Amino acid sequence: MFEVKNYVESDFKSLFNIHRNAFRSYSKKESLDDFKKSIENTVGKVLVLQNEIIGAIFLEAKDIEGEFKVKKLFITPKYQNKGLGYFILTHLKEEDEDEAIKSIELEISEENLKTKKFCEKMLKEI
């Protein structure tokens, strides 16, 4: 069964490697420092299966309280196209007992057709 846990610093290297593999053929190589900077000041959740990290989501708070933007969302290639991106997004809303999350914004990437299709689908469903 899948679990969603809070991101902790010790997850960083595993997540960096998963991110690189998830987007290997679509984007320029992001350095370790670039990746680290991109998740600073975000809220991170890690997707775990049988004690193995298989993906993550990082949200950035926007200027309006309760509004967040997806900064990073990635799943290891072995588990892509199995509904896990949808799972982690909906899990955030379901587990938000304080109802702190009013909205989650997805940015559609025009350069990556797979990501574009995912974002368009999620915008209709969440």
Rank of each mutant, 00 (worst) to 15 (best):
A100Y: 09
I88C: 04
E60I: 11
I88A: 01
K78Q: 14
E94A: 07
I64W: 07
L106N: 08
D63T: 15
S103N: 13
K69Y: 08
Q80R: 10
P77A: 10
F74H: 03
I88W: 00
E107G: 15
E97T: 06
K62W: 06
K69Q: 11
K69I: 12
V70C: 04
L84T: 08
E97F: 09
K78H: 11
K102D: 12
I108S: 14
F74W: 06
E60W: 09
A56H: 02
E107T: 13
D96N: 07
K69T: 09
D63K: 14
G85P: 09
I53P: 00
E107P: 04
G55H: 05
A61Q: 14
L106F: 13
I57L: 01
E94H: 02
E99L: 07
L89H: 08
F68G: 07
S103M: 08
E65F: 13
L73Q: 02
L92I: 04
L92N: 03
G55P: 02
A61D: 10
Y86T: 15
D63Q: 12
K62M: 15
I104P: 12
D63N: 15
F68I: 02
D98W: 04
K93N: 03
F68A: 06
E60A: 11
H91S: 09
I53C: 03
D96H: 02
I108H: 06
E105Q: 15
S103F: 11
L84Y: 14
G55R: 06
I57G: 01
E95L: 02
E52T: 11
E105S: 13
G66N: 08
L92P: 00
L106Q: 14
K72H: 14
H91T: 05
I104V: 12
E99R: 09
E65N: 14
E67C: 11
E65M: 15
D63V: 12
K72S: 05
K82I: 06
G83Y: 10
A56P: 00
I88F: 00
E99C: 09
K71R: 15
K102P: 00
Y86S: 15
E65Y: 09
A61L: 08
L89C: 09
Y79E: 10
A61E: 14
G83R: 07
E52M: 07
G85H: 04
T90M: 01
T76G: 14
E97G: 05
K102W: 10
F87A: 03
E52G: 02
D96W: 01
A61I: 07
I57P: 02
